[in-house]
């Protein structure tokens, strides 16, 4: 890629929009995954008893089971949310930048 085309792209108004939006989105999602996982680990470390509470009166299933499963499911859902927006909105932005520069 030549210096000219690099400058042309960076000057493009949609490029700034793309970079800012994606960066914010990616770091927010990363932070959420961090929060879910380390939140779970901190409960395990500091309040393990709260996960051993029965899910409903008289049940053997404990609160920990759905909590643990939700961490697994949240990982899948978060990646899904990212793919949905990146493969849609972000790729459309990239495409219009490319087309404008052609």
């Amino acid at each position: 890629m030549t210096t000219d085309s690099v400058e042309a792209i960076t000057r493009h108004p949609l490029y700034a929009e793309l970079v800012t939006k994606r960066k914010r989105f990616a770091w927010i999602l990363t932070f959420l995954m961090f929060l879910f996982y380390y939140g779970f680990i901190m409960i395990v470390a500091y309040a393990p008893k709260s996960l051993a509470v029965p899910l409903w009166a008289g049940s053997v299933t404990t609160v920990g089971i759905p909590v643990g499963l939700s961490v697994i499911i949240s990982a899948f859902v978060l990646t899904g949310i990212y793919v949905y927006r990146a493969n849609g909105e972000f790729d459309r932005l990239t495409k219009s930048i490319q087309e404008d520069l052609r």
């Binding site: 990616a26 770091w27 999602l29 990363t30 995954m33 879910f36 996982y37 961490v71 697994i72 990982a75 978060l78 990646t79 990212y82 793919v83």
Partner: peptide
């Protein structure tokens, strides 16, 4: 499992 979302983002 939790490394995978980080890889994605």
């Amino acid at each position: 499992l939790v490394g995978w979302p980080v890889i994605m983002f």
